[in-house]
Design a protein around this nucleic acid. Structure first.
Lengths: 199, 199
DNA sequence: ACACCAAATCTAGCACCGCTAGCGAATCTG
DNA sequence: CAGATTCGCTAGCGGTGCTAGATTTGGTGT
């Protein structure tokens, strides 16, 4: 039984290596630069090895995306529960500041890790979304938005409100990144959005 | 001078033919199915002819995108100035109904012409955006949103408000299309968004 | 210690991609 | 009708994602 487990462990390590390499390559040069050949060379195995771990390039991107959701969830959580600067206050944070922090953290994440964000939200990367089968990190990230928005739901359905707010953040992030919106007024747009969702 | 102009006319016709073929192919099978080989076969010319009209596949997509902006502008205008159903009222329309109509028309356009929408907003298709050099149809579409939102700007900068609202619509459209948001509650999300922007 | 066998891995290749050099045919000019 | 020029073609380059089949590796039983 020992040999079997050792092999499984080595396999898992190699899989992690592939995901990390794919992510680094994507973050450095974008997803179009992540080819199976370059990726194979980078992990020092031949191409077919990739296909013994993943169904194809899309599945590798999906794996990277899941990592991305986990990191985003962490960052959103930090933004929601940590006061922006010193500022007294125990664990509770001013709700408006919390939502603003989460919104800023979200768009900052998209700006700082564009390749990760692409894998998560832009590419067609068949992962289950918006169903119980969706990966846990995805729900973790979503739930941060839920908690940040809860104080402002009023009579509205909280889930729908979160989806709508999330869509707005996603729109701002992607349109800015695609050059459709000038970057230098991003903060003002964000403030405007927050004002409309914190009445 | 006649021969010259005839040649130019024929060239222009062929260019239009290429754009139309690209658009049809994309709408039928998605942009990944639009290859230079298939496109060339469809217009019954060889591949290199495409490159005598456009710098590359990206430029063809950009041309299709411009067509898309023109059509979207028309549809938004119609939605803004036409009462939804019979409903008395001359040329002026209830502002809230106008904005709701525009929002519905926007997301409906994205849903009905996904390939066109992709070329306009999702692909990296170097067109100038958010500058005076942007193609006129793009401004036309944007201006429909401006007019629809004008009554609700209040003290906010109208341009920024439009950009923010547009981002929200774009987010709803793309996340829904990508399977990130369940389609069946789209209307409720739209209503929720409208409520937040029409106070 | 060695031959065997199964599993893991690689080499080589398929069909396709965007794009282009350079040749041959068609068209206009004198 | 000869020459010049524009035009569109054939053929091919270096790349893509992915896979069939040979080959090496590593554990096993004698």
């Amino acid at each position: 039984m020992s040999i079997q487990t050792r092999r499984e462990r080595e396999r898992a390590e190699r899989e992690k290596l592939i995901i990390t390499a794919a992510r680094e390559l994507a973050e450095a040069e974008g997803w179009e630069a992540v080819t199976t050949r370059r990726l194979a060379e980078r992990v020092e195995y031949s191409q077919p090895v990739l296909y013994s771990h993943f169904k194809g390039k899309g599945a590798i991107m999906a794996a990277v995306a899941v990592e991305g959701f986990a990191e985003m969830a962490e960052e959103l959580r930090a933004a929601r529960t940590t006061p922006p600067e010193g500022a007294a206050g125990g664990q509770g944070v001013n709700p408006a500041a919390g939502l603003a922090g989460v919104a800023r953290a979200y768009t900052a994440f998209a700006e700082r890790r564009p390749a990760l964000y692409d894998a998560m939200f832009r590419q067609d990367v068949d992962l289950p979304f918006a169903t119980p089968e969706a990966p846990a990190p995805l729900w973790a990230a979503f739930n941060e938005l839920v908690e940040a928005l809860r104080p402002y739901a009023g009579d509205d359905d909280l889930g729908l409100l979160v989806e709508t707010f999330w869509a707005a953040l996603h729109g701002l992030a992607t349109l800015t990144r695609g050059g459709r919106l000038p970057r230098h007024e991003h903060d003002r747009r964000l403030a405007l959005l927050l004002a409309r969702f914190t009445t």
